[in-house]
């Protein structure tokens, strides 16, 4: 099971299209981080429109992937979470997913670009 991870301008877009086993999920984490590293992408958008279950394992992997991607220099936005998935995650426990979210892919890309710009702005202020 390989999930396509496509470059779009200065960011990467990964779209999960099918229900994943835990092994598939970890493989995806590995692949996406490797790609962020290789391409020196400034942002990563993970599209989970097709996921109808996000349980505590998936939540943990998403959080860890976002943390590690940030260490590699990429801002992360999660997009396309189904309303019933968002509801279920909230009911299970607040802050199970600690990643910025967006409604759809367009907004996800826009938000990640904004985060990248904000970060660069922050750096310049530091240098000044």
């Amino acid at each position: 099971m390989r999930i396509p991870i496509l470059p779009f301008e200065n960011v990467l877009v990964a779209s999960i299209q099918v229900d994943l086993t835990d092994q598939d999920t970890l493989q995806f984490q590995h692949d996406v981080l490797q790609k962020v590293d290789e391409t020196e992408a400034e942002g990563l958008v993970i599209d989970i429109t097709a996921l109808d279950v996000v349980d505590s394992f998936m939540a943990r992997v998403i959080n860890e992937t976002a943390q590690m991607a940030r260490v590699l220099g990429a801002e992360v936005v999660l997009c396309g979470m189904q309303p019933s998935v968002a509801l279920t995650l909230t009911e299970m426990g607040r802050q199970l997913v600690g990643v910025e979210t967006a409604l759809n892919l367009d907004q996800g890309v826009a938000n990640v670009q904004r985060l990248v710009t904000e970060r660069e702005g922050g750096h310049e202020q530091h240098a000044a």
């Binding site: 349980d55 505590s56 394992f57 939540a59 943990r60 279920t88 009911e91 299970m92 426990g93 199970l96």
Partner: peptide, 12 residues
């Protein structure tokens, strides 16, 4: 793990 599995499932 997060230790969120059992308590989370119960709430659902």
């Amino acid at each position: 793990g997060l230790g969120a599995g059992l308590p989370g499932a119960k709430r659902l």
